[in-house]
């Protein structure tokens, strides 16, 4: 076991996969000589050379399309979005070509590529650098969307994403890069399509992902003291959603709270609620509640920013309310 920071867990995943398969390469802004803005590709340039760790000009849509072309012709690109928000500039290549081209080509081409980088609300980074693109991209057919949350799952999921033959949007969180965890010395891969049951419980199902998992974990400490026994599920895969795990939990608890960092309108939670109504309406003892970020551009001011995203106390209160309405 070795204590590893999350950014280093990601780095190990890339390093191991590049060593395992020489068609895997990294491209993006400052991934090479500079080592990546969050040091996820540190020293890989020296190890693998300038073509396999390719510093690109600041041209997001074009280098993303270039990765699509490289993937179509047999390479396995990993794009680093210096900040995932920048990839709004690559929306066309991600949606039309990474997402849809396999289908529109009638299966002529596969597009094994990973688009990864920091998303989420950081500390006073301003609106443009505090985006949660997972919600914007969830409607695009053909994309897999994954959010990691711990050093362990970050490493295992990224390795799985690199090996997957489809385009994977891989969300890291800008405030989680320095999380520490003891990682196994042996190689492991974490499946992309499985939610993680973080805490088993019987009273209510809390569905969450990315940094909000840690806010939920804080809230659970308070709830435990009050005798409440929640089940916490880290969704991991935001598309497709793992309804086997979600459904099994709903059949046990009959109550669901969604805690997400994306905005409420058109968010991941909105899609989950609609799907739960389709699939498990009869299992529910209460309407599904969602705690989301406010529908506003993330303000710079620290206090306003705190009010924009969900805080542990709000989660605790929402769970208590739901359990108190117990029928």
């Amino acid at each position: 076991m070795a204590e590893t920071l999350l950014f280093n867990a990601l780095r190990e995943a890339i390093d191991e996969e590049m060593g395992r398969d020489d068609t895997v390469f990294v491209l993006g802004e400052d991934v090479g000589v500079y080592g990546g803005s969050y040091k996820v590709t540190k020293d890989l340039y020296e190890k693998y050379g300038e073509l396999r760790v390719l510093d690109t000009p600041i041209a997001e849509n074009s280098f993303t399309g270039m990765a699509v072309g490289a993937a179509m012709t047999g390479l396995r690109p990993i794009i680093e979005g210096m900040n995932m928000g920048f990839l709004l500039l690559a929306f066309n290549q991600i949606a039309n070509n990474a997402g849809m081209l396999r289908y529109t080509s009638g299966g002529n081409y596969k597009i094994p590529m990973v688009i990864r980088g920091p998303g989420g609300v950081g500390r006073q980074l301003g609106a443009e650098h505090s985006q949660r693109l997972e919600a914007y991209f969830q409607a695009v057919p053909g994309l897999k969307i994954v959010a990691c949350s711990t050093p362990y799952n970050a490493k295992g999921l990224l390795k799985a994403a690199i090996r997957d033959d489809n385009p994977v949007l891989f969300f890291e969180h800008v405030l989680l890069y320095n999380l520490k965890e003891d990682l196994p010395n042996h190689e492991y891969v974490v499946p992309l399509d499985k939610a993680e049951v973080v805490r088993s419980g019987k009273d209510v199902t809390i569905l969450t992902y990315s940094r909000m998992r840690h806010h939920v974990t804080q809230a659970v400490k308070g709830l435990e003291k009050k005798g409440i026994d929640p089940e916490v599920i880290d969704l991991i895969s935001l598309k497709p959603l793992d309804f086997d795990t979600i459904g099994a939990s709903i059949k046990k608890t009959h109550r669901v709270i969604i805690v997400e960092e994306c905005m409420k309108t058109g968010g991941i939670g909105a899609e989950i609620i609609a799907s739960i109504n389709d699939r498990y309406f009869d299992e529910l003892d209460a309407p599904v509640v969602r705690l989301s970020s406010q529908d506003i551009p993330t303000p710079y001011n620290g206090k306003l920013e705190t009010l924009t995203i969900v805080q542990p106390k709000q989660i605790e209160a929402a769970v208590e309310n739901m359990v108190a309405l117990k029928v």
């Binding site: 849509n61 074009s62 280098f63 993303t64 399309g65 270039m66 990765a67 699509v68 072309g69 490289a70 993937a71 179509m72 012709t73 047999g74 390479l75 290549q93 070509n97």
Partner: peptide
């Protein structure tokens, strides 16, 4: 154009 560039890069 970027897709073609990717094939050439490959």
């Amino acid at each position: 154009i970027p897709v073609a560039l990717g094939a050439a890069f490959q």
